[in-house]
Nucleic acid binder design. Structure first.
Lengths: 119, 119
DNA sequence: CATATTGTGTAGTATACAATACACAATAAG
DNA sequence: CTTATTGTGTATTGTATACTACACAATATG
């Protein structure tokens, strides 16, 4: 499985560090509850280094990033979203496959209409 | 992770067997490429017995079932669907969460409109 | 300059996942 | 009634995932 998370969070962390010296690898590691050596492996994209969803969420919070994006970068999908799909697999699989080639704005339009209660 | 697959496929296999004697556990196991003892464990819902997506697909074909349904029952989501979500995690996570409480017919309506190109 | 901090290298661990191999008792078929 | 077939029990295996522990060299700080 791909691991694009590392490069992304290293860049974000270094960017944050420009204005706030506290964003060291060790501080971040401590905050999400892993050994610094392990976070180092992740940031450098070592293929055998992964984080659990829980830790990716803590990381997202600390780096002010969207958890779904960070999960996506490490090849994962939020457990709650997975659960929704698993309850009605045919329906959701169908919908998602149909939306594969739709541009973002078309999907956002659906989101808005669903929220407005047009269904 | 839950494993409701076992009960479901045992019932389906036994139903098929009523009219076709070839639907034995051993035959099905041979068809999908696992040891009979392993399929036995799965059908009886032993928590530590799982099948890969590839084998669940072969099983679905052989039992004339929807692969997405069988994947769902074993707590999985089709790889191709996962890939679609991972490419635009924010967008899809948002949409799926918003659709959580929508009735089937409302989601089907969206599917139909997407297919009709109303976007 | 001494020392504190930082990132990284190496080695090792626990658990989940995805199976195999083979023996065996119960049932079915010839 | 013998033989074949069926489902299951037990033991074991390999790989992926998700980490820890600790040493160490380079860099930064007082």
């Amino acid at each position: 499985m791909i691991n694009a998370l590392g490069k992304y969070i290293r860049e974000k962390r270094e960017a944050l560090r420009e204005t706030d010296r506290r964003y060291t690898l060790r501080k971040v590691a401590g905050h999400i509850g892993v050994e610094p050596s392990y976070l180092s492996k992740i940031e450098r994209g070592e293929t055998s280094a992964y984080l659990t969803e829980e830790k990716i969420r803590l990381l997202a919070e600390y780096l002010n990033e969207d958890p779904d994006v960070l999960l996506g970068l490490s090849g994962k999908i939020s457990q709650d979203v997975q659960e929704i799909i698993r309850r009605r697999p045919q329906l959701f699989a169908q919908l998602i496959r149909d939306l594969k080639r739709m541009p973002d704005h078309a999907i956002l339009k659906i989101v808005r209409e669903v929220r407005d209660g047009n269904w």
